[in-house]
Amino acid sequence: MTLSSQRRYLHPLPDETFDELAMRALPELEPSKASEQLKSWNLHIFLRRPPGVLLGSDIVFIEDPA
């Protein structure tokens, strides 16, 4: 059974920050641009307390929604 393609995501590594994950996910972009791009795909991480702090269980999307 082949699974249909879905939006790609990463889990954070232990104690990884959002900016670090952004650089890992989007190494071709400048760090600030990578963070900003990733932010727009992952508003759920910034709409909670503390905003922008990655939790180990997070789903972090690394591409546009379909």
Binding site: S40, W41, L43, H44, L47, D64, P65, A66
Partner: peptide, 10 residues
């Protein structure tokens, strides 16, 4: 709505 045409919800 994203520039590429994709949509997400919050």
């Amino acid at each position: 709505r994203f520039p590429g045409g994709g949509r997400s919800r919050v």
